[in-house]
Write a protein that binds this DNA or RNA. Sequence first.
RNA 1: CGGAGUGUAGCGCAGUUUGGUUAGCGCACCUGGUUUGGGACCAGGGGGUCGGGGGUUCGAGUCCCUCCACUCCGACCA
Length: 573
Amino acid sequence: MRWSNFFAYTLKEAPKDAVVASHKYLIRGGYIKQVAAGIYNFLPLGKIVLDNIKKIIKEEMDKAGAQEVMLSFVTPYELWEETGRAKKYGDELLRIEDRKGQKFVLSPTNEESVVDLVRGTIKSYKQLPVNLYQINLKFRDEARPRFGLLRGREFIMKDAYSFHATREDLDREFNLMQETYENIFKKMGLDFRVVEADSGAIGGSGSREFMVLADTGEDDIVVCTECNYAANIEVATRKHEQRENPVKTEVIEEVYTPNKKSIEEVCEFLGVDPYFSIKAVAKKAVFDDKEEVVVFFIRGTDTLEETKAKNAVGALELVDVSEEELEKVGLVPGFIGPFGLPSNVKYVIDDDLRMATELVCGANKKDYHIKGAGLLDANLLGNLTLYRDIAAVKEGDKCPKCGKPLKITKGIEVGHIFKLGTAYSEPMNATFLDENGKAKPFIMGCYGIGVSRLIAAAIEQNHDEKGIIWPKEIAPFVVDIIVGDVKKEEQLNFATKLYEKLKKAGVRVILDDRKERFGPKIADFELVGFPIGVIVGKKLKDGKVEIRDRKSGEKFEVGGDEVFEKVMEMVRK
RNA sequence: CGGAGUGUAGCGCAGUUUGGUUAGCGCACCUGGUUUGGGACCAGGGGGUCGGGGGUUCGAGUCCCUCCACUCCGACCA
């Protein structure tokens, strides 16, 4: 490509609303342009990067035996009613109507579509397994799109759906997809982790996320400093420690703690290490048909992990609850404890407290706490006691696999694989005949990659204060040949010849033959982020050309006749 | 969805408090010239329904009403 007639422009200033690096550089570099909140146009540079990523994904998916299809972007609303997700997905589902008033949705994901495609088409176990994938537009009406391509409303996703006759076969495919994803992200030159994850609204029995490590990530992930344990904080676990309380209380007693409500206040007042206290977190759990107050008990030094807590009670969501609402069900805000709770209040206790003794907790009585309590004393509790892991793992907790310290880092979710089981085939009545001629629902898996988000994630992980530093595999062009002064025929001719030669050799190369001075050209080289720069400038009269490596910043001169070989060597590396 | 803010040329902004000629500046763009290794300089030029609608007024970018869009914090989010 010759830059002089390439539709690519750069900006000196980023729009003020771009706050993360990828958003800023994608706009300044002329990759994308905003159309509406969370909706972008892709300019040629952006489209090339997108295609490069698509190509890698397609290669690996095909290698794994998956077959590419393209499902319709507009899907009948009825399909969504069949699985009940019309309601569950809520306002994120963009509904539209045609001229006859028939309702449709813009696909935010395609489980329903693909099950509809397969039911009645695949009839026998002999036609299984099959894995269908597409790389297609998705639309989710996010409440708050942000950060450019990291969280858009309209985005490109690779989604795959597999169908199996047995659980074992699903497990096999799930593992194959994990391997395939690892190959894809490795090929793209990204630093990523595979983590255990919550299944969320998609449902199913098991799931793993692929996280690109970057400070701007929206997800907290827990990784072990020693072994390979890694999990999203939503599901991360830790090894339970049992610290012995040095203070021994003879009797369990109520103590007067006037106006001391928070853990800090109470523990300071009583001179107790907060580790030996119980924090009560009250929430309102929202279910399909009702709402109720649930109290979660965790250690004073822990915080509640809402996703775990939500799953522990099987609620759709947890929302904050007011003091009035607490009082209405008989709770005493600020002094809630696990002993002697009103019998109509549901509660969950964190696993970590199961064996704990000598604790301070609320007495369910205004201005009183209990001292010296232990949960082992089961008869203090009602018989509905529910122990679950509901606390958030924190930095320094011990790895559940090897016991070494855990640390927390930020990650950007770029892939997610699920074992769906029969969560969609059953409600949609999609069955096949097994060896015995009996109808059984398909056992399914689904596998997603956020393709446009990957563009942003790659930049978040690979940039500096000047611009993007593309991994070679996905860079729009690998080599940028800069002509120092296009009016100098000697320079232009030399550069053009080199350009043609590299192009012939299959290298993605751009010739910067714009009538610009050297400054803007080199600045654009850095901003747009080409991996290799070749400067054909004033040193050419001494037979020298300069080569720069964008990533290392290294620059060196080579003789005009060695340039081609030297560049090819760098391209191959 | 709750809270806060912004909307003036492609981008970044001033002008709005206190209504008053023809709405300005930097970057970008066009023409000519000089420059040519880190975002040049000189001269000339084009580009605006001041987010939309309504109102007050002799007069509205500025005041009032209303609608819309976008952004930030939070809730939410395969």
